[in-house]
Amino acid sequence: MDYTFYLLVFFALVILISSFVTVKQGTIAVITIFGKYRRLLRPGLSLKIPLVENIHSRISIQNRSVELSFQAVTQDQANVYFKAMLLYSVLNHDEETIKNVAFKFVDQTNLMQALIRTIEGSIRAYVATQRQANVLAQRNEIVDHVKHQIDQVLESWGYHLQDLQLNDITFDEEIMRSMSRVVASNNLKAAAENEGQALLITKTKGAEADGNAIKIAAAAEREAAQLRGQGIALFRAEVAHGMTKAAQEMEQANLDISVILFTMWTESIKHFAENSDGNVVFLDGSTEGMNKTMKEMMAMQIQKNRKDQAGE
């Protein structure tokens, strides 16, 4: 009788203890009754009917990752080798979503096999439409294509593709060598073009500098010529003014104007002698020559005076 009592107490304790279920954070427990779905248990301490309700599975709602390594063939028959990292999670915490996750596949192995093969097939289908030269530059396009293609399929399974990272894209060794040669030749071409552009810019700048120097020199020469012309004109005007004043004073003194011309004649000869720097200047120093020169100068003076009077 004592053994029966203790046995009943033991079974009662076992049943009581088995009525409590602890669900870890980040996990949802799926409860079934005789193999049929019954309800969900959220994280924390919960109760279940002993011997009737059974924990079918514990579904992790945390992010999960898996590494992929596979091969694809491009449109121009080049082998491409991919190494990728897949990040996925349960779509949401809704009851229907958790039921899909729990009952769509026999186990996690079958789920992973279907998930990996679906993603690999989507990438292979996209790569088959592209040429080898374009694949390296289309990482983002490949990821967008995969997400667009398999999002609905994964949602029907209760999962969502968080991210797909193509960590490494390689080709056969011969193709990699040829690509390296193409890159090297393009770099050499770009360097030659840059050197040509630099030389062209240098020569252009040099030509512009020479042109600007010529323009500046021409402008300076033009300004100097203008200044020289203005100086000569001013000198002539002052000479004419001085001669006119001297002639007027000599007329008032009843002196002959030819004296001025004679003075100019002698001053000119003196100037030629002092500033000739060894050059030979032939002048007619005879009385007839001096008279002829003086008459010409007087005629020029008279003509100028008439012009001045006519202008007044």
Rank of each mutant, 00 (worst) to 15 (best):
V101H: 04
A207L: 14
V153N: 05
K270L: 14
N187R: 13
I214K: 15
L166C: 09
R228G: 04
N140W: 07
T22F: 10
E195S: 10
E274Q: 13
G285K: 11
A246I: 07
A198N: 09
A310S: 11
E267F: 08
S268A: 14
I169S: 02
A220P: 01
E120D: 07
F5K: 12
T4N: 11
M250C: 06
V21R: 06
S185H: 14
Q113R: 12
A253Y: 08
H56N: 05
M264Y: 06
L227H: 10
R39K: 05
V280F: 12
A225W: 06
H148M: 05
A213V: 01
I175E: 08
S18H: 08
T287N: 12
A84R: 00
I17A: 06
W265F: 15
L283A: 12
L199A: 13
I260D: 05
S122I: 01
E238W: 07
N187D: 09
L115A: 07
S286H: 08
A184P: 00
T22V: 13
A310V: 14
T22W: 10
I257N: 12
V14R: 04
T97Q: 02
R58P: 01
M250I: 10
F20P: 03
I169P: 02
A299D: 15
R42Y: 12
T244S: 11
F282D: 11
